[in-house]
Design a protein around this nucleic acid. Sequence first.
DNA 1: ATAACCTGGATACTAGATATCCAGATTAGA
DNA 2: TCTAATCTGGATATCTAGTATCCAGGTTAT
Lengths: 157, 157
Amino acid sequence: MGEGVEWALHSCVNLAWAGPDRAVSAARLAAWHDLPTAYLNKQLQALARAGIVTSAPGPRGGFRLARPLADISLMDVVAAVEGPEEAFRCAEIRQQGPGGGPAASYAAECAVAQAMGRAELAWRRELAAQSLDDVRQQAERQAPDAPRQLRDWLASR
Amino acid sequence: MGEGVEWALHSCVNLAWAGPDRAVSAARLAAWHDLPTAYLNKQLQALARAGIVTSAPGPRGGFRLARPLADISLMDVVAAVEGPEEAFRCAEIRQQGPGGGPAASYAAECAVAQAMGRAELAWRRELAAQSLDDVRQQAERQAPDAPRQLRDWLASR
DNA sequence: ATAACCTGGATACTAGATATCCAGATTAGA
DNA sequence: TCTAATCTGGATATCTAGTATCCAGGTTAT
């Protein structure tokens, strides 16, 4: 699991704190947590392609949330940043070597892949069940003045 | 998720099919699915350290299951091969840059990490709920003569 | 017109997964 | 006792995917 996921999740919450009337540039989002600007920008582009944020070029441009945090699940962000690939990739080793029979006998998915797939499904379900707004609320409980600090810092530029 | 997981799961089922009275060497287990012997051996060593299989050196040596398949969960194997590390590693970027306050305010785990941790817990729970014997039964449903083929092939060496 | 900003491609760097090899220890069987 | 088969664990090499940077081109507010 790449770091980009953590960056993207925090960035979405930060965009919510910045407010819908202010676009935030990749450079500012990166500076706020001391991340490499160009690389964070790549993650933000992925969020934009997935329709999670909108982007605008030019002065006063940057990124905005495309919809309320409550309508964005962790699964949305993970899928946007990590891509559609499964964590467990079945290489079908059962078909290789003396243990492999004729190709016709492999219509059904390997039992190992099925079992691992069930676990991955549970993971996705749990990710889909949690919204970014849940994360924001918990973060504000831990640091109630985080939103204000961010807005002040953005305003002073 | 490394390929070693798939190899280890198949190898455990193969060991069950070989039967408890026969130790199978890493070389034979690897040849059965055309895997690199030395590297599969590393995964088997990890299983041995985790107490999932037992190993014996010398002629007629090799690996055996340490307990019945029904008492081995997918989680046991994944933990043995992949190590204890979480898939999502929180880099605590919230503490970095202007967004980071005094270190004292980070007693609680980051809200992002908490949410991702819940999903990973669901994944682990599902892995722990499935035993290797479930996988074996499903595999035998798909290929009823797989156990016999393996035993014949082992006997002919 | 200028400067701020996103987009996407090309490219380099790095860490971890994959793979191989070897010297040493253990043991069955002749 | 000797030999050959086998595991153990460390050292090392290779490959892949993630991380990171840069640049040329396009858009837009002021």
